[in-house]
Design a protein around this nucleic acid. Structure first.
Lengths: 235, 235
DNA sequence: TCTACTATAATTAGGGG
DNA sequence: CCCCCTAATTATAGTAG
């Protein structure tokens, strides 16, 4: 009656063999776990996709098998996966969630402060807090204006320097015109000169008008600009 | 030679039995998978914690065992765990991490904006951005001052109302004094009078102090009006 | 830990209920 | 799916190397 280890073609016989041998393996697994105090899990999927599983723990803890098979699997994962096992994942998830909560709180706090700095949602502040806020915004305004003026000054400086350079270039070109009065300066050279002059004038004019505009416009509704400008800067 | 299924005490014998039976189970598992075309995985941990595992796939795909045992485990998880298997946990972790990154970016963004609203770290802003920021802070300052003034006014109103009530109470008491000049006001009435006066004085004093303190901190010209109004109405 | 051996225990194919 | 039975096969305890 010896059989070859190959697929049993006759379905009824295969089903019977599957049942018998499956129980045989589970029994052997249980025996091994007891005899040698080892932890054993067996997972079998029948040809039709049905699951049969065994784990030695069902004898030890007297609870339904799936959970203990899961335990063995968790141990298996932590053995071979090392860093990718179940427990650290769950622990990490917890950490990430706590982080998230903390970040949300910080974000809410920052948003609230930012709104107050923008001068909205001030209803809940008492007089003393409003006083402090006013000082803060006042000081901020001072710094902004100072920074702006410094920037304007440095740009003016730069433009003056450029102007001086242009004048120098002009002088040199005039000098060359004198040196070569019959005009062997090419058209490109003339164009270059004109461009330089235009650039200089436009720049100076634009910056200076901007400055004037600042001083004349003092109380427009600017709130919406904030996010635009700042995100522009941050982007 | 029949043995009882209980822990083998003699260590060498237990080790030999473990080795023999382990191989026996693996063999049976392999045979079952072939005979009945089923998928089998066996996981065994020895008493010393060493892992031995078998999966039927090693015959089918000719690749190292751990991966195929993992495949069987994955199938096992999707079978029984369904919603609580490995994948969702890892997916959730991914989501939380992405959330975290997003929150961190928002927080950084808000912090930067807040710093700029406070007038620090303005070096990287260009002239146009500084211009807009100035308008924004200016408008904010206006709103803060306005809110503060409104608050001050409402507190003044409250004080006026309280003062008027006190005056009225005074008048009534004086009237009663006239009505009963020989003083047949009972002790309770006297007590009531004293209480009313005390409450009134304490209230006025405290509110007024707060108000003066507030105004003295201000660079604006509100303090004189406040004091005048208070002294005028309450005095 | 492995191999070999042997006697015996355990499993199981095949059949039937 | 359960049980049975029987004969054949297989697994393994004990032992030694």
């Amino acid at each position: 009656m010896k059989i070859k280890i190959k697929k049993i073609d006759y379905l009824p016989a295969r089903q019977v063999t599957f049942s018998k041998r499956r129980r045989g393996i589970f029994k052997k697994a249980g025996e091994l776990s007891i005899l040698c105090e080892s932890e054993v899990a067996v997972i079998i999927f029948s040809q039709t996709g049905k699951l049969f599983d065994f784990s030695s723990s069902r004898y030890q803890y007297n609870t339904p098998p799936p959970f203990h098979t899961k335990d063995v699997i968790a141990r298996y994962n932590s053995h071979i996966g090392g860093e990718k096992s179940d427990q650290p994942t769950i622990h990490q998830l917890q950490l990430e969630k706590e982080n998230n909560i903390r970040l949300r709180k910080e974000l809410e706090d920052k948003s609230c402060k930012l709104r107050q700095m923008k001068g909205v949602d001030l209803e809940d502040l008492d007089l003393d807090e409003l006083q402090k806020l006013e000082k803060l915004v006042e000081a901020s305004l001072g710094r902004v204006i100072q920074t702006k003026e410094e920037k304007i000054m440095s740009e003016v400086m730069a433009l003056e320097k450029k102007g001086a350079e242009l004048i120098e270039a002009n002088n040199q070109l005039s000098h060359r015109m004198v040196m070569y009065p019959r005009g062997d300066i090419g058209p490109e050279a003339i164009l270059e000169l004109e461009n330089l002059n235009n650039i200089g004038e436009e720049s100076v004019t634009s910056e200076s008008t901007t400055n004037v505009t600042t001083c004349s416009n003092s109380s427009l509704s600017l709130e919406d600009d904030c996010s635009d400008i700042l995100s522009l800067k941050l982007g």
